[in-house]
Amino acid sequence: MTYKITTFLIFFISVLTVAQEKNYTELEVSIPTNSVTINGTLLTPNTSEKKPLVIIIPGSGPTDRDGNNAMMKNNSLKFLAEALTAKSIATYRYDKSALSYTKEEIEKIDTLTFDTFIYEAKRVIDYFKNTEMYSKIIVAGHSQGSLVGMIASQNKVDGFISIEGAGRSIDEVLVEQIELQAPFLKDETQKIVIELKKGNTVDKFNPMLISLFNKQIQPFLMSWMQYNPQEEIAKLAIPILIINGSKDIQVKIVDAELLHKAAPKSELFIVENMNHIFKEIKGDLNENMQSYNDSKLPIMLNFSDKISTFAKDLK
């Protein structure tokens, strides 16, 4: 009898697992743009009626569709997409364009500007709008992707979600970060960003700042500095959800509050104990840092639930 019960349980669990695996369809979708082909993953709930679609825009650096890069693997964006699709919301997440260049095209990476990312996000939005397959289209931008998304969303989508997005222009953020990490470099950093914001390159500076201000990245920073998140989010005439984690060590709660103040009709949601990559942190800075390279640690449920509710409640 025990053998039969055990066999039945194994069979039941196996069937349940297969059923869970088949509650959505996964499809690789490549979207051509004038700069490069955008490669991403579309998850579609297996239902006949139209569903809302959330387009997830990744953060800074060579970040892929799952929220990972060569230095860390945490699957933050992958887990978010899967959590939303499990709640009958379609999702599309894509690789940063820098990851799509071939070896022969690698030199083109140095020509990327912040405007390139905005253009590419617009093309992704247009692609899915033209399919007419979704009840609503929502953009969710993470970190740097928040600013990209709020600009690309203007006059194009039904809702916008800022996830751990800065509320100040990148020049202000850079100066603040340097002041916290290396106060003796603050004044020089301030002088550099002033010149870059004017459109002037800077040749001579402290070698300790080379990772921030090398000649190849300066044009990108110049284009990024031209945008103020508070001004851009104020232009949106759609429902807005602003999310920040209380344990985010990269973007402060004050940034979310600044965005909320600039868009008074927006909804502000602070997730207690959530860090920059949506993981629950109960301990110290060491636990926070280790989570960035933990590919199995799940994201917080109340975070994904809030996004799901926002997407489904859009009128």
Rank of each mutant, 00 (worst) to 15 (best):
I125T: 03
L112M: 10
S246R: 06
L80M: 12
Q250D: 07
E132A: 12
D110L: 03
L80F: 13
A166S: 12
R65P: 00
L174D: 03
K186Y: 00
Y24W: 15
F8L: 15
M208C: 06
S153A: 15
V54P: 02
R93N: 02
K265H: 15
I253V: 14
R65C: 01
D284S: 11
K96C: 03
K306M: 03
F269H: 10
S60K: 06
G59F: 02
T116N: 13
N68A: 00
K103G: 05
K247A: 08
N74S: 05
T102I: 03
I299G: 04
E257M: 10
I210F: 14
Y227H: 11
Q177N: 13
L84W: 03
E107S: 15
I106A: 15
I163A: 11
S153K: 02
M1F: 13
K197E: 06
I38Y: 00
G40K: 03
L80N: 07
E21R: 15
T189A: 05
I242G: 07
M133C: 11
I217P: 00
Y94L: 01
F205K: 09
Q250V: 06
Q218Y: 12
I55T: 07
I270Y: 09
Y94P: 02
N244S: 10
I151P: 04
Q290L: 13
I38N: 02
E179C: 08
T113W: 10
V175G: 10
M300S: 00
L180D: 10
V54K: 06
G67N: 04
K312Q: 14
T91H: 02
I163K: 03
R65D: 03
N288Q: 10
I233L: 01
K296E: 14
E179D: 14
E105Y: 02
N68R: 01
L16C: 05
V124S: 01
N23M: 15
N200Y: 13
E172L: 12
K50G: 05
L9W: 11
M225D: 01
G149M: 06
L77N: 05
A256F: 09
P52H: 08
E287G: 11
A256E: 04
A234P: 02
Y94F: 13
S295T: 09
K215A: 15
I5A: 12
L9Y: 12
M1N: 07
E257H: 07
I281C: 05
K73C: 07
L99G: 05
I118M: 04
T131E: 11
N273Y: 11
A182K: 14
E195T: 12
L84T: 05
L285Q: 11
P219G: 08
A237F: 03
A121V: 01
N288V: 09
N68P: 04
A152E: 04
E267V: 15
I242A: 09
V18N: 03
I163N: 08
E287H: 12
K50W: 03
V271A: 02
D158W: 10
S97F: 04
F128Q: 03
Q190I: 04
M300C: 00
A263Y: 00
G141M: 02
E176C: 04
L43H: 12
A70R: 09
N286R: 13
I56A: 00
K78V: 01
L196I: 10
I161T: 04
K4E: 15
E280M: 09
N275G: 07
Y92M: 00
K235D: 06
L180E: 11
M222R: 07
T189G: 11
T37I: 10
I125H: 01
L77S: 06
K279I: 05
